[in-house]
Design a protein around this nucleic acid. Structure first.
Lengths: 149, 149
DNA sequence: TATATTTGGATAATAATTGTCCGAATTATC
DNA sequence: GATAATTCGGACAATTATTATCCAAATATA
């Protein structure tokens, strides 16, 4: 069970937007270039992010994208669900099987609980926190610069 | 992010095996019939379950499958990983991107933690527990029988 | 030997993901 | 108003993953 590459693109793109949130807008072409990924595909992903309410788009000249809400309100859970959807990781086809409802409900309930635990973690990490922690880490790693190339 | 149908098949099949663990062997054809799913496909899934060490196979006449370990040692996590593999839900292609290692490591670490929380729940539920709880639930629901058809 | 069964490999069908393209709509600027 | 710069939406294509089928070979029983 793996996240799609689209989710990875989205996370890094939104991080990029968060870092550049002081600018009026950022072009999708710039974001794609920064990550070395397909621009037209990333454009499609951004359409979804707009619909999900995570970014705002501005059409026309000087247009581009901007976070729709502050970076401290966007969590990894938000991004993940915006891209992957919100349907549960486990569902049972009650129709197909001569279904043992009791067992199935137990399994489904367990899966839901596990999923919830996962999202609880992901909901704690905001774009803002990522920026802060990254900055901190980078400072702590400055000694690396003293190593001669 | 959803589990494949194979995982659903595997869970229900192993539950079936656990319930019938008193018998010498159980045929894959029987298990497929019980769930109204494709026999040849389920056979493929069982090859994987054998490799993962969850079931033992017996070839030839009177052959079939049997749990390789007691039902109280097989968890939903075990089954899930046997079918879906163990690679992490999130990985970053460091090569493609002009990669910001620091940010990427933060994201990866968060994802790993979330994943771990999920598996902690799934690792607590064994086939045995499912059987016990299902039994209990069924007893509590016996009053349903008093409703006329 | 005949029968029953899993195994492993090849292959096909279907669905999901990833990626591309283009015309239309929108906005800023000259 | 004309032009240039963008996103939007839809259609489409390519690639990959999932689901499914089939068969010959291996193995076990009787």
């Amino acid at each position: 069970m793996q996240l799609s590459q689209s989710t990875e693109y989205a996370i890094h793109s939104l991080f990029y937007l968060a870092v550049n949130n002081n600018r009026q807008t950022v072009l999708v072409s710039e974001i794609a270039r920064a990550q070395n990924i397909s621009e037209s595909y990333l454009a499609k992903i951004f359409q979804g992010l707009v619909k999900a309410g995570l970014v705002r788009s501005y059409r026309g000249a000087k247009g581009g994208y901007h976070l729709a809400v502050p970076a401290e309100k966007i969590t990894l859970k938000n991004i993940m669900q915006a891209v992957e959807g919100t349907s549960p990781i486990y569902t049972c086809d009650h129709d197909r099987r001569d279904c043992d409802f009791v067992v199935d409900c137990l399994i489904t309930a367990t899966m839901k609980k596990a999923e919830k635990k996962m999202y609880e973690i992901l909901d704690k990490i905001t774009l803002e926190k990522l920026i802060e922690n990254a900055e901190e880490l980078r400072n702590q790693m400055k000694w690396l610069d003293s190593i001669p190339k």
